[in-house]
Structure formats: C-alpha cells, structure tokens
C-alpha cells in the first residue's frame, strides 16, 4: 500500500519552511527573504531523462512560482512521497534573497492515479496554473490528461515524437474542449516565423505575396518533424490554398529539425536557411542578410511559453490546418 501524502501536511511544511528561512536572517539584512510567486507550475517528469533542476531554477527567476515537481519512477509497487524545499537566489548587488517554494512529489507508476488529488489542494489560490509535461519512459501525454482540468495552460513538446498524428490528435482534442495547450515544437519556430514576417515588412515584398507559387520546406533527418508540419500549416493559414508545398528531407542521423523555408515565385525567391553553427542566411532577391538562431534551451522555450498565458489564436488556427501536413498513423 502506498504511503499517504497529505496536502495539509505539505502546506504546514511549507509554512515551517518560511519560518525557518526567516530565522536564518542575517543581522544586517533588511529582511531575510522575499517570497515571489506568480503562478503554480506543475512539472510532470521521470528519472529517465536529464534532470530538469537547472532549467527550473533558471525559470523561477523569470516566472516565480510555487513549483510542484512530480517525479514518476518505474516499478509496480505503489510508492508516493513528498518533500518541500525552497529555490532561493541572491540577485546581483542585492542583500535580500528571493525564494520560491518547491514541492517535490515522487510517485511510482502504480501510484500515479493518486497524484491529482494531492495536487488539487496545493495550487496557489487566485493565480494561474501551468503544467509542463516532460514526457519520458515512465510518463507521457496519457498521464497528463488527469491534470488538464486544473491547468490554465499545458505545455508539451512534440520534438522527436514519432507518431505525429497521435500527438496532433491529443492537442487538437484538448483545444477543442477549451483547454489551453502549447507545444515547444511550435515555440521553437518563433524566430523562424518572425524572420518570415520581417521579410514582408517591406512593402515591395508584400506586393509579391499573391505571386508565391511554391513553398519549399527542407529538414535535416529522415522523418518529418512536427516543426516542418507546423510551418507548413502556418504558411497555409497565412497565404491561403494556392501555393503548393515541396517537402525535402535532407537526410542525416539525429533528430529531425527544420533547415530551410523558401517562398518561391516565378522570378523571385525568399528563403531562410540555418547552417550548422545556427547562423542563418535570409535571402531576399539578391540581398542576403545574416542572423543567428541559437539552439534554444528548455528554459528559454518555457520562458516564452509561460509569457503567453492567454489564448494563442495563431497556434489554434494552425492546429485546425495541421492534419493536411501530417502523415496518417
């Protein structure tokens, strides 16, 4: 039988944590710590992937939260445990620490069904609840379904997912039921999309929109990545049904990722292509300019995603067109 975990006990432990932090005040400090909290952030993860600790510590500086980290372990026996701790940092040049609360819940797969009932009593009142599903060997989207009703926003990551159709069906279903779901595979495209939009800030280029006849999308790797499907759906949404699509797998080992977007007319071409070092060439007719699309860390992606807590109409419109570009499973 699983050890019981009581939300009330956890909240008492949190209270005690703040009392202890207050006692550790240095004599010359104006106040020991400053508690910062702008949301509840639930993170569902397991031990099979890299520890998200560093990502979350950085994220607390941008989006201070009550962090509830749910770690799922393998095994058939029922196990459930909890502990509380604080994520603290001293901002440069200041004398007061800033702290966020962290509740760590460990559960075996057999106890996973008990977790939502514990979490319901632990979210911070009156503030948004974000859920980040960091899928691994022992947890995935199916486990996240129980958390959807309490989430103001759920963040998943479709990069590297093999069954794009199933993934898209989950997102589309959740959106249709009124939940807010975001995909880090879409977040990674912000720089790309911004670069495309910037090309058409130029009125001369804008006038050629209707003359675009072909869209070429190339990616490294063999399998179509979700990012390429997203870009195609976004361009379809933006340009309408006329341009035809030319998908080009460039091959190579490793995870598939977007390489080139080209918008082609009879006598012109606009393209954006990323090199090995993440340097980017933007070609607009004869003029080329350069930029850098740094490989974004999970922290940077989440930082952006958690900044968009309301509806995301562009993503929702893209989701409604995505099925055209996804191979049937």
């Amino acid at each position: 039988m699983a050890a019981a975990v009581s939300p009330s006990r956890i909240l008492k432990d949190l209270d005690q944590l703040w009392v202890d932090l207050g006692r550790n005040q240095q004599a010359d400090a104006p106040a020991a710590v400053l508690r910062a909290c702008a949301m509840t952030l639930l993170v569902l993860t397991d031990d099979s992937s890299e520890d998200p600790g560093e990502t979350l510590a950085l994220l607390m500086r941008d989006h201070p939260s009550r962090l509830i980290l749910i770690r799922i372990a393998g095994g058939d026996s029922a196990r459930l445990g909890a502990r509380v701790l604080a994520q603290c940092w001293m901002p440069f040049g200041r004398r007061q620490q800033i702290c966020c609360e962290q509740i760590e819940i460990t559960a075996s797969r057999a106890s996973l069904a008990d977790v939502p009932s514990v979490i319901r009593g632990l979210t911070v009142p009156d503030l948004p609840v974000a859920v980040w599903v960091r899928a691994g060997r022992f947890c995935g989207l199916a486990d996240a379904v129980a958390l959807l009703p309490m989430a103001d926003k759920m963040v998943i990551d479709s990069a590297g997912v093999a069954d794009l159709a199933a993934q898209a069906a989950f997102i589309y279903g959740a959106l249709r039921e009124g939940h807010s779901v975001a995909d880090l595979a879409w977040t990674r495209l912000t720089r790309w999309r911004e670069a495309v939009a910037q090309l058409f800030d130029d009125p001369a280029n804008l006038e050629r929109l209707a003359a675009i006849v072909k869209i070429r999308i190339a990616w490294e790797g063999e399998r179509l990545p979700m990012s390429a499907a997203y870009v195609a759906a976004w361009l379809r949404k933006s340009l309408g049904p006329l341009p035809r699509f030319d998908f080009q797998p460039l091959g190579g080992a490793g995870r598939s990722r977007l390489h080139t977007i080209a918008l082609v007319g009879e006598d012109f071409e606009y393209s954006i292509a990323v090199g090995q070092d993440r340097s980017v060439e933007l070609q607009s007719g004869v003029r080329a300019s350069h930029s850098v699309f740094p490989r974004l860390t999970e922290y940077e992606l989440l930082r952006e995603e958690l900044s968009v807590m309301g509806p995301d109409p562009v993503y929702q419109a893209v989701m409604s067109l995505l099925s055209e570009f996804i191979p049937k499973s």
């Binding site: 939009a197 340009l239 968009v308 995301d312 562009v314």
Partner: peptide, 9 residues
Amino acid sequence: NPFQDPARF
C-alpha cells in the same frame, strides 16, 4: 502582413 503574430512577436 499576414505573417504577424502580436502575441509572440
């Protein structure tokens, strides 16, 4: 410009 995304850009 049809590519705008004010929520993110």
